[in-house]
């Protein structure tokens, strides 16, 4: 039977197709291809230093995308549009609390995580207890956060990153790798452990694929969903602190670009927006792929408009591979 299957060309073609449908593999192949193309376009693009620089930027996006990934996995049109606002808020708060001094780093981290957790809690309560669709709730929250930023900044340029934080993000920390890459790796391990090895992880997939069945089986659906939103905002807050370390000072709306790119990273990594399927390893590859694409485009001398056109088209082609819905004609 097995021999017959192997000899059947139709079967082996569909086996190849199954591999091509594996987002992680596709992302990996694309990353290698893009690095080769980048090296051909401008020698030194795929050098170790340059890849490290890309990894730092990808780590910032990847940490935001971790929270986004959790919310999307939880299903019921789960999506968090407020992550960009939380990133900006956290960068400003961290800068103000730190004010360029290493002694205040712990306090800054605590303040930012608490603020992020609170935002996520409100999102989660709005979505679960009040039954507001996640898109509407987090969109409204984004408006509140943007207003809050104006109040906190008071029109004055905001605080400074502590030197230790700046070093952690961009200088070699351990085995010649910057601390932020270790942090991202830790987030990756934590997410993999949470999603694959803990009962909480299994429950997240359960509510994502069939909320009613999960509820009947005794899963505390509301509590878990609130927690997912809280985690999402806390990951965004963590990324905000790192972004402050990366840029030195916090400037206005530094987080705006993370809102939709975190969603794209998740989708490119093979987690469909309908939830219940996928994981974080793919999202990490998706985040790196996204940053790599943007970086290759900056090496081309086609101007800002050309860059955007090519980026948009490439995204469309990539999205053609992932998460397309089934045809109505079964």
């Amino acid at each position: 039977m097995t021999i017959m299957q192997h000899s059947n060309p139709q079967e082996s073609r569909s086996a190849l197709f199954v591999y091509l449908k594996n987002p992680l593999l596709v992302a990996f192949i694309l990353i290698v291809l893009l690095l080769t193309a980048g090296e051909a376009l401008s020698p030194g693009f795929a050098s170790m230093e340059q890849i490290l620089r890309l990894l730092i930027v990808a780590a910032l996006l990847g940490i935001v995308a971790a929270g986004q990934n959790l919310v999307i996995l939880g299903g019921r049109e789960g999506i968090d549009l407020s992550v960009g606002g939380v990133v900006s808020l956290s960068a400003v708060l961290a800068g103000n609390v730190m004010d360029g001094s290493n002694a205040n780093i712990i306090a800054a981290i605590l303040v930012c995580l608490a603020a992020g957790g609170l935002v996520g809690l409100i999102n989660g309560v709005g979505v679960t207890i009040f039954g507001i669709p996640p898109l509407v709730m987090t969109l409204g929250m984004l408006g509140v956060l943007q207003g809050l930023l104006v109040v906190i900044r008071q029109g004055i340029p905001s605080g400074l990153a502590a030197p230790a934080l700046a070093n952690f993000v961009s200088k070699p920390f351990l085995f010649n790798l910057p601390g932020i890459i270790w942090l991202w790796a830790a987030v990756g391990l934590l997410m993999a452990f949470l999603l694959m090895r803990t009962s909480l992880g299994h429950k997240i997939y359960a509510i994502g694929s069939n909320e009613n069945a999960a509820y009947m089986a005794g899963v505390p659906v509301r509590l878990i969903r609130i927690m997912l939103f809280a985690l999402s905002s806390m990951f965004a807050a963590l990324a905000g602190i790192c972004i402050l370390g990366y840029s030195g000072t916090s400037f206005a709306n530094v987080g705006d670009s993370y809102m939709l790119s975190s969603i794209i990273a998740v989708v490119l990594g093979g987690t469909p927006l309908s939830g219940g399927k996928g994981g974080y390893t793919g999202t990490m590859a998706g985040a790196f792929l996204l940053i790599l694409m943007q970086s290759i485009l900056t090496t081309l001398s086609i101007g800002e408009s050309g860059r955007q056109v090519v980026f948009g088209l490439t995204l469309l082609v990539l999205l053609l591979f992932y998460g397309r819905s089934k045809a109505l004609r079964g």
């Binding site: 794209i264 927006l273 995204l315 397309r324 819905s325």
Partner: peptide
């Protein structure tokens, strides 16, 4: 048949 949110963002 792409997902509307990400496709229209692209």
């Amino acid at each position: 048949r792409m997902q509307a949110i990400v496709a229209t963002f692209a």
